[in-house]
């Protein structure tokens, strides 16, 4: 399979998340919620691609990304109580994921496996750290 499809999908999701972050930062009165639509679109694309014959590296990348997004949806997006602090943490998370997806797209295209693995670890770290932060906020409120 042409690597450019995976690379373009990663880059597109990264672009969309960063554009969204810019819009939210530019208009603090807009009360716009950070949307996971770019992640969902990437998930839909990768869920289809993963069924095609792939090399083991590509299969691992697509499996990681779809599972990662599933976890974000299950824990952060479906039916989570609203609070300003949590929404801010979510906005920052999506922005950081956007930046990391950009880096991931570059490393993937250049076949830099070491760098790619580091970015996946970084994606995991930023997500779990934001969850910890949100839980701290929740416990302070209680």
């Amino acid at each position: 399979m042409d690597k450019s499809i995976i690379q373009a999908t990663l880059k597109q999701a990264g672009d969309d998340l960063l554009d969204q972050a810019k819009k939210i930062a530019a208009d603090s009165e807009a009360q716009e919620l950070a949307s996971a639509r770019p992640l969902k679109e990437m998930h839909l694309k990768f869920s289809q691609l993963i069924q095609l014959p792939l090399n083991s590296d590509d299969r691992f990348l697509l499996f990681f990304m779809t599972t990662y997004i599933d976890d974000i949806f299950a824990n952060l997006l479906l039916d989570s109580p609203f609070s300003t602090e949590i929404e801010e943490a979510r906005e920052i998370l999506f922005k950081e994921i956007g930046e990391l997806l950009h880096r991931l797209a570059g490393a993937y295209l250049k076949n830099q496996q070491g760098e790619l693995f580091e970015i996946l670890k970084e994606l995991t770290r930023v997500y779990l750290e934001k969850i910890d932060r949100m839980n701290q906020v929740a416990m302070e409120v209680l």
């Binding site: 976890d71 299950a74 824990n75 952060l76 039916d79 989570s80 109580p81 949590i86 969850i131 949100m134 839980n135 929740a138 416990m139 409120v141 209680l142």
Partner: peptide, 16 residues
């Protein structure tokens, strides 16, 4: 139990 966010893990009228 599977929810990572603590305040999303219990639904209903619960008080400390």
């Amino acid at each position: 139990p599977r929810k990572r966010l603590i305040n999303a893990s219990v639904k209903g009228n619960f008080k400390k």
